[in-house]
Design a protein around this nucleic acid. Structure first.
Lengths: 195, 195
DNA sequence: TGACAAATAGAACGATCGTTCTATAATCGT
DNA sequence: ACGATTATAGAACGATCGTTCTATTTGTCA
């Protein structure tokens, strides 16, 4: 049982462990993970992963996955097409959690129902990230209570006039009779296509 | 320097450390983090975090953040409105990295330019997750090379007929002259609104 | 104000960590 | 075929980990 172990294999093993357990394996655990019986073998491969930039050591000497070990490479724009493996390495890596969760603790997720924001590209079934307790600016998309129902709308302010506007010609603008209950501001939209 | 330390404070400190360094702090490090001078104080708070479900111990006795420590709570749908703190605790928590990255290693990110998929709710500036090397099914959104340029289109197959279709009346369907170069299949769309 | 609980300090300790060393086995190039 | 290189094994070791214990200080409430 030898030789047939590539850097990618080891990386996948370690990365999988980290994904599942949210911590690095110890050398003893990595022995099992790699199917070897000596810590020095683990040490051997860890040094390779360090050199490859998959793992890093911090000031205290502790091992942790590097920034680019997780997340997806950001490779440019659609016009540029899809990347060659070479240039793929060079681009930045984005973790969605870092990218989308700017205010942990005050944000939450809703699944969109209804088509009131369809012209803004927010479809039924999409997920929206809501930041609660943020003061909406004119033009922000908010979740608001209208006629006892919660819905997504543009928040508009023109001088003293405050109203809600759908991104769908079917729905007329809405002015608050008494007060406008705004639950939060949409900070992101996520749509996942079934794989 | 005493007494004024809440569970939330400690949680934020530990969580912040984990976010930055991608590993748990040691007890010694947590002492500095919490501003205390004894490991037993750390132990004291760690037990509280364990009880609160913020941290967990695995079979080996190692500490790691729980699933619900990161990510955002999924609180239902828009019609249900925004949640009370109470029910917020009960719902599932979603990590975007887990949710969106189903095929690490074969996926990458592109920023959308152009409006060819605008009626599908994919706008210029949005991010799309591309799975490369996946065989597109009819109806999938793909990145494809058309007239030497890369663009997003629906992939359509009707019997023997294979063609690309925009989600925008401005663009007519496209049939491949020679071959259809498909770079990958869109598995998700992400749009972030400036905060 | 006094008693009790909550929070912090500090020291001691076994367990286990990651490193390093030497030695052996498989693979490759010529 | 054979030396050089790469990969694995196994043992030894100091460092540091997290736990536990006892003691002290601060806050709360009757």
């Amino acid at each position: 049982m030898r030789g047939n172990r590539t850097l990618k294999d080891v990386e996948r093993g370690i990365a999988g462990f980290y994904r599942d357990r949210r911590r690095m394996p110890t050398y003893s655990e990595a022995m099992v993970l790699l199917g070897v019986r000596s810590k020095s073998v683990v040490h051997f491969w860890v040094r390779k992963l360090l050199a490859a930039g998959v793992l890093e050591k911090d000031a205290r000497g502790f091992l942790h996955p590097s920034r680019r070990a997780f997340g997806l490479p950001m490779v440019g724009d659609v016009a540029a097409g899809f990347p060659s493996p070479a240039e793929e390495e060079l681009r930045d890596v984005i973790s969605f959690d870092e990218y989308l969760i700017t205010k942990p603790g005050t944000s939450f997720l809703l699944r969109v129902s209804g088509d009131s924001m369809i012209d803004e590209g927010i479809h039924p079934g999409d997920l929206v990230v809501i930041e609660k307790g943020r003061e909406p600016k004119s033009g922000d998309i908010v979740i608001a209570e209208v006629d006892g129902e919660w819905t997504l709308k543009f928040f508009r302010r023109k001088g003293k006039d405050v109203f809600l506007e759908a991104a769908n010609v079917k729905y007329p603008p809405i002015r608050a009779r008494l007060e406008l209950r705004v639950g939060g501001v949409v900070s992101a939209v996520i749509r996942k296509y079934p794989g």
